[in-house]
């Protein structure tokens, strides 16, 4: 941790102190996403979209954090946080299972 804190400078974006590292992550991830997708055969577009759909289910981690730090008497936060965890899980589980089902069919066919 100390290594990161010593080497990481901060920049103020919209009033938020943002480590430069975060900006690098954003830029590199954005270009990486473009590169990863550019060479995909049309046949895999649907499974790929479905897989990407499951991956943005990572938003569930935000809901766990919100829920995990909600005060015991804050019913709004508890209720909505609980709902958010359920919805996020639906996104993750449903997304991966549907993708797997689609890809299962490709596999079965290739064996022949």
């Amino acid at each position: 941790m100390t290594l990161l804190q010593e080497t990481s400078d901060f920049i103020t974006i919209f009033g938020i102190d943002t480590p430069w590292d975060v900006l690098f992550v954003i830029i590199i991830a954005a270009f990486l996403g473009v590169e990863l997708i550019s060479n995909v055969p049309a046949i895999l577009h649907t499974p790929l979209m479905s897989g990407a759909n499951a991956i943005h289910g990572v938003v569930i981690i935000g809901s766990i954090i919100v829920m995990g730090h909600a005060a015991q008497d804050n019913y709004l936060a508890l209720g909505l946080g609980f709902l958010a965890v359920i919805l996020g899980t639906l996104n993750v589980v449903g997304g991966f299972v549907v993708t797997n089902r689609m890809l299962e069919m490709f596999k079965k066919k290739e064996k022949k």
Partner: peptide, 24 residues
Amino acid sequence: GGFLYDNQVMLTGGILVGSAGTIL
């Protein structure tokens, strides 16, 4: 969300899908 919580995995996952989805 990742930006808000300074949460790396939400950032990478979200941005990967954001850019890949846009290209798609």
